[in-house]
Each structure stands twice: as structure tokens, then as C-alpha cells.
Design a protein around this nucleic acid. Structure first.
Lengths: 145, 145
DNA sequence: GCTATTTCCTTAACATGTTAATTGTTGCGA
DNA sequence: TCGCAACAATTAACATGTTAAGGAAATAGC
């Protein structure tokens, strides 16, 4: 049986891109005032939530590839928002930690960011919102369920 | 009332990124053999579906920003997969059309791509799959509904 | 007609995504 | 201990995402 591709207007990958753009647009707008990018914000948020951690864990939790994280970490370090320290026991490894300046950005903006997210939750409705997160998790091979 | 950000493990933007990665990973793998990228594939698919069109419409349907499309179109033109022609009536505008070589790539791979998509539909279930597309559309400000 | 504005597209500059190659460390087995 | 596989992180190379600025052509308004 020969399968046919769905119309691009009903394509899952394209729908995911557009939804992401719709969600990120107001967040990017908010972040523009802080001078940090969406990915840098994500790294800072993970560090603020879980504390000091090794690079591999950070990359995983931030959904970033290693090469990207290398550049982002260097950038954040130059801005004084994180610190990097080598593991003395295994000098290949590295730990990253958020600084007070980095924490301040999170503190100053988390309320605003939360309002943006709340707006989407309201648009979809609480029930649909949770359903959406569950369905998206099913598409993520890294999810434990 | 002070809103609090959800845990990054339950963040909508991150969930969208991960879902997209989960969906695109096998598609990228398939495209690697053809030497074209995911975005180039998307442009070719739109052109194959709707035929010759102006750049603005193409950018919109492919969910690409103009600067990206400029580069991608130049790249596809060098590969001989599309042709670009100026509009004689309005010489600012431009039309892009898929070539037989470009069409061949679509024809050769669409069945395989469709099977990958069908796999996700099966994973989620037909009903959930349609619900997901509907919910994603609600997050897209460009959607007409 | 003539200029100011608008529109379409391209370039530029910087950050990230992606894959592959490279460097520096560690640990293990001959 | 020597050599080598395995691992962590970086670098390289190329494509794209994103915002801003630039350039060419069309249009509005005077």
C-alpha cells in the first residue's frame, strides 16, 4: 500500500513549528528587554530550579545539544550570569551554577513569563492544556512513560 | 497575585521543542540520504502540492522567515531543484517553481515520509492525533480559526 | 512629474541546530 | 607501565532562526 503525505496544512511537523512560534513570540518579546535569548533563559531557568549541576544533566534538562550548550555557557559566563568549575576528581567533567546576577533575571521576569503562559492556558482551557502536554510527551522519545 | 512559572519538566515551550525533536528525528534521518535539509524538504513539498507561487506565499506556507527562504531558495536553485523567475509586471516580485529533479525527490521519498507520519498517528491513536493538530492550531496566531 | 512612502527582497550580524572531527582525561587490560 | 578504548567537552563547518539595515521597484499624493 502506497501512503500519501498529508497536505502541508495538516502536517504534524509544521503544526509543531507554528505552535512553537506562537508560544515563543511573546516570550521572546519579553526577553528582548533583558538582552538574553530564549535558550539562555531556558538554561538559567533549569539552573534556578535544580541548582548546580554537571553539563550533561544541564544539556538534557534544557533540551540542548552539547555544542549549543558549550557556546551558550561561554556566553552566559561572559555576562556573569553563571560560573563554570571543573570537577577535581574527574577533570573531564564540569559543573555549572547560576550567579546572583543570573538569579536576579529569573526573579525579575518569572512573574511576567508566568502570565504569558497563563494566557495560553486560558486560551486552550485548563483541560485541553493538560491534554496537550500529555500528547506532546507521547511524541518525545526521551519521556520516561 | 504573583504567578509562578511551571517546572521546566512541565513547560509548554520545552514540551513543544521535545515533541518536535521526536517527530523530526526519523524524518531527518530519512532526508540525510537525499542530501537536503528538513527546511528544503518543506519548501519542495509546498511547491509540489500547490505549484508555482510567489516568494511571500511560499514563505508563509513553508513557515519560514524571508531571510531564511532567500538562502534556501538560492541553495535549491544551485542544486537544480527549483527555478526562480521575476514577475515582468512587478519586477520586485519573484516566482519559484519546482523542477523535475526536485519533483523526483518528493516522489521518491513521500511514501517513506508518509509511513513515518503514520507511525506517529498510530502511537497516539487517530482521535488523539487529530485533537493534537487542533490544539496546536489554537496556539498558532496565523491560523484562520 | 517628483518626492515620500510602501513593498519585496536581499544582506548583514549574531545565536543556535546539527553532524563530524578533535582534544584532553580517565580507566582498563596486556 | 604501556597502549588503547571510552568518555567529556570543545571546535569546525554548514544551514537555519532572528532582528535590523539596505537596495530596488512600485505607488500615493501633491
Amino acid at each position: 500500500m502506497t501512503k500519501t503525505l498529508p497536505s502541508t496544512s495538516r502536517s504534524l511537523p509544521i503544526a509543531l513549528i507554528r505552535a512553537r512560534e506562537g508560544v515563543m513570540s511573546p516570550i521572546r518579546e519579553m526577553l528582548a528587554e533583558t538582552g538574553i535569548t530564549e535558550q539562555q533563559w531556558r538554561v538559567l531557568r533549569v539552573l534556578a530550579e535544580y541548582g548546580r549541576m554537571d553539563t550533561k544533566t544541564l544539556a538534557d534538562r534544557s533540551s540542548l545539544l552539547f555544542p549549543s550548550l558549550t557556546r551558550i555557557a561561554a556566553n552566559l559566563r561572559e555576562k556573569g550570569l553563571v560560573t563554570q568549575t571543573r570537577d577535581d576528581k574527574d577533570r573531564r567533567r564540569q559543573f555549572i551554577e547560576i550567579t546572583p546576577d543570573g538569579q536576579k533575571i529569573i526573579d525579575d521576569r518569572s512573574s511576567e513569563a508566568a502570565q504569558i503562559v497563563a494566557g495560553f492556558k486560558e486560551t486552550l482551557g485548563e483541560k485541553n492544556y493538560e491534554s496537550l502536554l500529555d500528547l506532546l510527551a507521547m511524541l518525545d522519545p526521551g519521556a520516561q512513560d
